[in-house]
Computed example of a mutant assay.
Amino acid sequence: MSLIARIAAAAALTLSAVAGQAATVSLLTTDNGWYSTVSAHSPSNTNTITGFYNNGEYRSFYVFSLPGLAAGETILSATLSFASGNGTMEGQYAQKHLGLFDYTGSISSLRTGAADSATAFADLGSGKSYGTATLNGPTGTMPGFSVSLTNDAIADLLAFSATPNHAFVIGASLLDPFVSGRAETLWSSSGQNGNAVAARLTLVTGQAVPEPDSIALLGAAALAFGIVARRRKSK
């Protein structure tokens, strides 16, 4: 085997080893619900209605229990997936636009319904954007869909995975204009028929950067390629 071939094989094995350290973690919600401009969350209610209904606006929350990460491990990507058939989509908008946001208040109070309703409602639809989705309507059974979460979301996931209880919240809000007297909702009548788990969070974890030995090997490979290429040109 030539020098170039040996170096290329070693580099490929190194990259494969680094990639092989990635793992996928799938997490279901440990709690979910809503806060609105007209009412607060009830702990027994797993409905996640989001949008405009009965002259009020509703915003949902999704709680996850994050895994602890090993030393040197990071979250490479995160995806939030919503279950299909969980309630209905109602209204007249041909498309509905969903926004996902951070939550900065007390998670315990949010879950028990003890959070100030107006404050929790505002928090669930403002702040850092965790992603957006467009759903074709206007009415029908809720489809299943996924949202790739933003870098801000991944940074917060890393931070919350290091907290004692590992709890993490994602807020959901309808981004379309409010229309008085008209329902424009996602997940109406959700949480019924035993479908209490509303969403799934999928994390891909792995090493934050290649290990120093791996970097050195790849650097040596690049240098060797350059040396061989120059020798060939000089002949």
Rank of each mutant, 00 (worst) to 15 (best):
A83Y: 06
R182C: 00
Y130W: 06
A221N: 13
D102I: 04
A229G: 08
A155T: 15
I170T: 12
S214C: 07
S189W: 14
L76P: 00
R231E: 06
T112A: 13
A12M: 15
V147K: 02
S173E: 08
L15P: 00
E184F: 08
S81H: 06
D102K: 02
V18H: 06
D176I: 05
Y93F: 14
N165F: 11
V25N: 10
T205H: 11
G91C: 08
L69E: 09
S234A: 15
S108I: 04
A159Y: 12
R230K: 08
A40S: 15
V147W: 08
N195G: 07
V63K: 10
S2P: 14
S190F: 09
A11W: 01
F225L: 14
P43S: 11
L124M: 10
M1K: 01
G131P: 12
D123G: 04
N47Y: 00
G206S: 13
L218F: 10
G125E: 10
V169M: 07
S36N: 06
M142F: 11
T139S: 11
S84L: 03
A172R: 01
N47L: 03
L27F: 01
H166S: 10
V147L: 03
M1H: 04
T139I: 12
L66V: 05
R230H: 01
S39C: 01
A9I: 13
F52H: 14
L27N: 02
Y58P: 09
S129P: 02
F225H: 03
P177D: 12
S214W: 06
L98A: 07
A10L: 14
P67W: 04
A40M: 05
L100F: 13
D31K: 15
E57I: 07
L201S: 01
K128C: 03
K96S: 05
L124W: 01
A162V: 03
T134A: 15
H97Y: 11
S65V: 11
T132M: 08
N45Q: 06
G105P: 13
A70Q: 13
A183I: 05
S108V: 08
N32W: 00
N193D: 13
F225E: 03
S190V: 07
G91Y: 03
A229P: 00
S77K: 14
R231T: 02
